[in-house]
Design a protein around this nucleic acid. Structure first.
Length: 358
DNA sequence: AAAACGTGGTG
DNA sequence: TCACCAAGTTT
């Protein structure tokens, strides 16, 4: 069904419809230089596209850059990454967040080696079958690394498309409609450049707050701009407030400076990451924190709690400390780690905050 | 299909 | 201070 036949979808005059050539011309002049980007006119290695795209999921360019460089230096190929122990990958990922990405990154590298001879598949369908690769990442690799005609619709694409067509329907319900509209924009060539041009446009011109419409190659075609309030789009449903949880973290410090540490369960929140032992984190905290201490000791509460905000709750962690004799043995499932060994541990940010109380 | 899943920067 | 945001995927 042509969009024009549906009165719910407003379409700009045909003469002003966004032309992919205009965006590509803008991209040729304003493309951002990013560590994972190939030189103009060249394709990027699939592994590098893969690595960067996984890291960039819900994560800013500035945050990702140093991690990308470190991973690439340490594991220059899928095969190298596949050979690495998961613990090392988690440790290198520590601080980046969404740790399932690191577990899936590793699993995906192994799957590419085991199932595809160490070569990333070159179709969206086959890529989609790999762990950690969803519709966005499959389209990103297919277009950027293999020049397939594909639409990696991320938040930038959604914002740009929602404004171009003034889509009133709120996200996330509007996702299917935005994707359908996005597909109408695709060029017949330069698919990788087009995908990245959309992201650059969203990141530098068609920004969430104050879009720079005067600099936009598509300004004439944009319905939201014509309406006078482009920042109104995309419409989103309000998010629920974050509940609070509390807990107590136990900082057991041995005479030689070693700290008692354990690993979290392999899945779920901070899955597989290292942590200082603590009570469960619950609304209102647990009734008897001492009952959760990893060993019997003269625990004393430190005055400054650690505050940390996760994706779906805010945590306030009290910190209790005990100093123990040099010969104290670690309880089952725990280990002593000296400060020199902290960097090799997979401590997430919240645990680095706890350790900072030492 | 809605909820789980991190973190740091910004206005 | 705090809500919102950033190249989403999994269950």
């Amino acid at each position: 069904m042509p969009a024009a036949a549906n009165p719910a979808i407003r379409v700009p005059p045909a003469a002003a419809r966004p032309a992919p050539e205009a965006l590509l011309a803008w991209y040729d002049r304003h493309r951002r230089r990013l560590p994972w980007r190939a030189a103009p006119g060249r394709r990027q290695e699939p592994y590098r596209v893969f690595l960067s795209e996984i890291m960039l999921q819900q994560t800013t360019v500035v945050t990702v850059a140093p991690y990308y460089e470190a991973f690439l230096a340490r594991w220059p190929s899928v095969a190298a990454l596949a050979d690495a122990p998961l613990e090392e990958v988690l440790s290198a990922w520590a601080g980046l967040g969404y740790y399932a990405r690191a577990r899936n990154l590793h699993a995906c590298a192994r799957a590419v080696v085991a199932r595809h001879g160490g070569v990333f598949p070159d179709t969206e369908e086959a890529l989609l079958d790999l762990p950690g690769i969803g519709p966005y990442t499959a389209a990103a690799i297919a277009s950027i690394a293999y020049e397939r005609r594909a639409a990696p619709v991320d938040g930038n694409w959604e914002r740009v498309v929602a404004r171009l067509f003034a889509v009133d329907e709120p996200l996330p319900r509007a996702k299917a409609k935005l994707r359908a509209l996005a597909l109408t924009l695709l060029p017949d060539a330069r698919h990788g450049d087009f995908a990245q041009a959309m992201m650059d446009l969203g990141a530098t011109i068609c920004t969430p707050r104050k879009p720079a419409c005067a600099l936009c190659p598509w300004t004439e075609a944009c319905v939201a701009r014509a309406e006078g309030a482009p920042e109104r789009y995309p419409v989103k449903v309000a998010k629920a407030a974050k509940p609070a949880r509390r807990g107590v973290a136990f900082l057991a410090v041995r005479a030689d400076g070693a700290v008692l540490v354990r690993s979290r369960p392999p899945k779920g929140l901070l899955g597989g990451m290292s942590e200082v032992p603590s009570t469960p984190w619950e609304p209102g905290g647990v009734a008897n924190p001492a009952g959760h201490a990893p060993l019997k000791a003269p625990w004393r509460a430190l005055n400054a709690p650690v505050a940390h905000v996760f994706s779906h709750f805010a945590l306030e962690l009290d910190v209790w400390r005990a100093d123990l004799a040099a010969g104290t043995t670690a309880p089952a499932g725990h280990r002593w780690v000296r400060p020199e060994g902290f960097d090799a541990e997979a401590f997430p940010s919240v645990m680095r905050k706890v350790l900072a109380k030492l």
